[in-house]
């Protein structure tokens, strides 16, 4: 290197090497894949874990993740902070997330534009919020609270949704852009979620992307979806994470990379998880698109330069 690294946090105190997410494909980490990943000749670009799975005090799960983190860049993806919650986010849960972040020093921390907890309990699903000024203010204040505690910006992910709300007054893209502008967070663009929500709500995916602030996207998610039908018998897509990425979503992804450049891209496969080589094949498909379309993109290869 001819110039110093742009940032060198925690020199002398860090447990792990400083490892930013590369503009390559990554995979959601599953316990059954760990041995295969560590011994594979194919070096996956990065791995991502659900923060909640590592909020226990100790044990074999932490031991395995520490081994992964020593060798690969890591992204921590929260599923339980309930950023869209009307009752505020749980200070206890935020402390747990902070502990995971301090423990593993991930390159990226992300969460969802959704809610999942209420007084009645934890629903273990990413539930939708109406898009209006009141919910915008609430989400922004929660993200500011999280970023203040973690002392770093997070990425916010666009959701898959199945219903709409009478209380909605803004488009999803305007809502997300305003959140990012007011909170200073970055964005995680889930291309499968774009396709699922666009199908379910009758939007055009390309219009959604045209309105989405791609310049703020620091990570992309890809996953498989299932097909169902709505009350009228029309196609309703389910964000199932249980199969390969659909061809239509790969096409949309190519469009995104052509415009945004090479961005770290995660393959998510959380249900009916296959053997590692099947997931690796999906990652290699993403790698090929990143190599082919990233360098000539409209926004330039901003991430590749890092």
């Amino acid at each position: 290197m001819t110039r110093p690294a742009p940032h060198s946090p925690n020199i002398g105190t860090s447990r792990f090497p400083d490892a930013p997410l590369p503009p390559r494909a990554g995979a959601g980490l599953k316990p059954d894949h760990i041995a295969a990943i560590l011994t594979d000749d194919y070096r996956i670009g990065f791995l991502e874990v659900h923060a909640e799975n590592y909020m226990g005090d100790g044990g074999p799960a932490h031991r395995a993740l520490a081994a992964i983190r020593a060798e690969f860049p890591l992204s921590v993806h929260g599923v339980g902070l309930s950023i869209g919650s009307e009752g505020g986010i749980s200070a206890t849960h935020l402390e747990r997330l902070a502990r995971v972040v301090e423990r593993y020093e991930p390159a990226m921390v992300s969460e969802h534009l959704a809610w999942s907890s209420h007084d009645a309990g934890y629903f273990n699903d990413l539930l939708p919020v109406p898009y209006n000024s009141a919910s915008l203010e609430r989400v922004v204040s929660h993200i500011v609270q999280i970023q203040d505690r973690l002392k770093r910006p997070i990425l916010l992910e666009n959701p898959s949704t199945y219903v709409a709300f009478e209380q909605t007054t803004m488009s999803e893209t305007d809502f997300i852009r305003d959140i990012a502008r007011k909170s200073g967070c970055g964005l995680l663009l889930d291309v499968n979620n774009v396709f699922v929500s666009a199908t379910n709500h009758g939007w055009k995916p390309l219009h959604y992307l045209r309105d989405f602030p791609l310049e703020l996207v620091e990570e992309i998610h890809l996953a498989g979806h299932a097909e169902d039908v709505d009350d009228e018998g029309d196609l309703l897509l389910i964000d199932a994470h249980d199969r390969p990425v659909a061809d239509s979503v790969w096409k949309l992804y190519e469009t995104v990379i052509s415009q945004a450049g090479a961005v770290p891209t995660l393959i998510e496969w959380d249900n009916d998880v296959p053997e590692w080589p099947v997931l690796r094949r999906e990652a290699q498909l993403a790698d090929a698109i990143l190599d082919r379309l990233g360098p000539g993109s409209l926004l330039g290869s901003r991430h590749a330069a890092e």
Partner: peptide
């Protein structure tokens, strides 16, 4: 969110207030 959450756990409850389908569609299956 209170009524949304209650209706999640009890399929006999009606749709929560404000939950609709897009462009005039129904929201039961959704």
């Amino acid at each position: 969110q209170r009524s949304f959450g209650a209706a999640l756990l009890d399929p006999d409850l009606p749709l929560p207030d404000g939950v609709i389908g897009p462009r005039g569609k129904g929201a039961q299956k959704r």
